[in-house]
Design a protein around this nucleic acid. Structure first.
Length: 585
RNA sequence: GCCGAUGUAGCUCAACGGUAGAGCAACGGUUUUGUAAACCGUAGGUUGUAGGUUCGAUUCCUAUCAUCGGCACCA
């Protein structure tokens, strides 16, 4: 960081210094408690910091407390942070004498003749800075968790222990952050999915959700909405096989590139792979008949079930599963059609997420990797097209240089879960390779056979993952159009059983998702349960309502709304549930 | 897959080297209720699974499965 250009008054800069310094203080405390520790790296991250280190034994929760305690002592001592410049050799020797082999490795990778050193008390670290002036400025911190992390992020390297912490300028900010963590945990889709009877898991099928009636209702609505959205925008829908002989996966390239993540089993004298993606099937469908340029773009939609053999440690609720469906589609296009199709796709994605009130936390444009396949010219043109449409769409994006698939560049849309973890949902990928591998052709205007370009795209992405982020987005309180149960009809007592039943039937007949609660319980009890289940509407019926042909409406958030005629309520809720994605212009 | 933690009734949790306990839910009864929990009672568990140590294991040890927090992976 250029010392002359930074604004030391900038709160972001100060926070950065506090967190970076807190990481040093933590390492200092660990050094005091475990003198034989070796330190690796300790950067600032979102909301805090971590430090990776090699310790004589695994840390426990008690250790974390002891480290925190020692940190407080260091902070109380108010040591200054001293900056020094050392010759590389000098630094190498010093860190060698102190058995800091990771630091030596880092020094070896530094190009300059001198290296930057920060000292705080008797803790000396190789570090570019910047830091606060005194340890007392790092008072408001908390250590959060310990985990394993590979040295230099490579699983071939030894695993170090990583301690995560958070640090803030004031106690209020720290408390607020910790409170937010607790609140976020309440929105966790794994907790809500269970509490609201949406989904269950069983150890007999790790990573494979069981959709319970309520969860399946939401799932079906999402699926239907997207199916209809696609169909009215020029797509066709197909259904494709669940498993294929290995020859198909060899042709598509998955046998070489993705086999590790597929479920494969023997069948007579060959092997069969459960499908992990739909693209190969769609290639076969395209190839099933001859195509003229007049047929293009051909847009094939498929919500088939996919299985991916994710590594055991990767599974996580609904957001990382082994069995899932995508709102998948493959577009077979001519080169001229790439841009307009991309433009339409971005509009469809935008219009879809708008309906849920969801925002992408990041949009990545992933460009040509080193081991790319195909012609450079095609790549350049594809990347230019993606850049053009992404900018036209006004999306705030970041370039992930070299992170594209080997077959083409892509745009990935990222949504954060309640705990701030990022998940890819929508994706748009250009593919020049699969059409070649499957020898796809269409007859161009000049009567020559040309290879189409394929666009892989999904808007929800995995419906399971989308459900997960959606549950957290709404904290389980789904809007009326998505709510698996839209209203509870609640009778006061035995006198209104028939009336309540007739109200419930009228609602069902109007296409609403109503639940009749005739249990011999108090109104308060039934209301409470409906509130906890986050049912949008509670319809209480007593003698007054029965005589007037009305229902007393209570809304989940707004509370008691007074009595309205049944027909009026139905009209209201039907119009409220009339929600759809806007078509691209 | 790697490092670490966790696993007790349907759910949320307690206990602990001496044959497991609560609240809610369930079931039975009383009550017939006006917008977030009526009252009484009953039943419910091979403490994830498999071994081992021990007179005795839910508790200690080992393995294994699942889940959780990270790392790595993520067409």
């Amino acid at each position: 960081m250029d010392e002359n250009q930074i604004d030391r008054e900038d709160p972001q800069y100060q926070l950065h210094c506090i967190r970076h310094s807190a990481a040093h203080i933590m390492a200092h405390a660990v050094q005091d408690l475990f003198p034989e520790s070796q330190f690796a790296i300790g950067p600032v991250i979102k909301d805090g910091f971590y430090y990776d280190m090699d310790l004589p034994r695994a840390l426990t929760t008690e250790d974390l407390e002891a480290i925190e305690k020692r940190m407080k002592e260091i902070i109380k001592a108010n040591n200054p942070f001293m900056h020094e410049e050392w010759e590389k050799d000098q630094a190498r020797t010093w860190f060698g004498e102190n058995k800091q082999t990771f630091k030596q490795e880092i020094i070896d990778g530094i190009g300059d003749e001198k290296v930057s050193i920060y000292k705080e008390g008797d803790f000396t670290d190789l570090c570019a800075g910047p830091h606060v002036r005194y340890t007392k400025q790092c008072k408001h911190f908390k250590l959060l968790k310990v985990s394993g992390a590979y040295w230099r992020g490579d699983e071939k390297n030894p695993m170090l222990q990583r301690i995560y912490g958070t640090a803030w300028q004031t106690k209020e900010e720290l408390d607020k952050y910790l409170f937010q963590l607790e609140e976020a945990a309440k929105r966790d889709h794994r907790k809500l999915g269970k509490e609201l009877d949406l989904v269950m898991f069983h150890e007999y099928a790790p990573g494979a959700p069981f959709w319970l009636p309520k969860g399946q209702t939401i799932f079906r609505i999402l699926s239907d909405k997207m199916r209809n959205y696609n169909l009215r925008n020029g797509y066709v829908e197909v259904g494709t096989p669940q498993m294929f002989r290995k020859d198909l996966w060899q042709t598509s390239g998955h046998w070489d590139h993705y086999r590790e993540n597929m479920f494969i089993f023997d069948d007579e004298d060959t092997q069969i792979g459960l499908k992990a993606m739909n693209c190969p099937s769609h290639m076969l469908i395209f190839k099933n008949e001859h195509h003229s340029y007049r047929d293009l773009p051909m847009r094939i939609h498929d919500q088939g079930v996919l299985h991916r053999n994710e590594k055991s440690g990767a599974l996580s609720g609904l957001t990382r599963v082994r069995k899932f469906c995508q709102d998948d589609a493959h577009l077979f296009v001519t080169p001229e059609q790439v841009e307009p199709e991309l433009r339409t796709l971005l509009a469809m994605a935008k219009n879809t997420y708008e309906v849920f009130g969801m925002k992408f936390s990041k949009v990545y444009l992933s460009t040509r990797p080193d081991d790319y396949m195909g012609e450079l010219e095609m790549w350049n043109q594809a990347e230019a097209s993606l850049t053009k449409v992404i900018e036209e769409a006004g999306l705030n994006y970041q370039i992930n240089a070299g992170d594209g698939a080997f077959y083409g560049p892509k745009i990935d849309f990222i949504i954060e879960d309640a705990l701030g973890r990022e998940w890819q949902t929508a994706t748009v990928q250009l593919d020049f390779q699969l059409p070649l591998r499957f020898e796809l052709k269409y007859i161009a205007q000049d009567n020559s056979a040309k290879t189409p370009i394929v666009i892989h795209r999904a808007i929800y992405g995995s419906l399971e993952r989308f459900m997960g982020v959606l549950i957290e987005h709404y904290a389980g309180a789904f809007p009326t159009w998505l709510a698996p149960v839209q209203c509870h009809v609640i009778n006061l007592g035995e006198g209104q059983i028939d009336y309540a039943t007739s109200v419930h039937k009228a609602l069902l007949k109007a296409g609403l998702r109503s639940h009749l609660d005739l249990r011999n319980e108090s109104v308060n009890y039934k209301i409470r349960e409906a509130q906890l289940q986050k049912i949008p509407y509670m319809l209480v019926v007593g003698d007054r309502e029965m005589e007037a042909g009305t229902v007393s409406v209570r809304a989940l958030r707004e509370g008691n709304q007074g009595s309205v005629p049944i027909a009026e309520f139905i009209e209201r809720i039907v119009s409220e549930a009339d929600v759809d994605f806007a078509d691209p212009t």
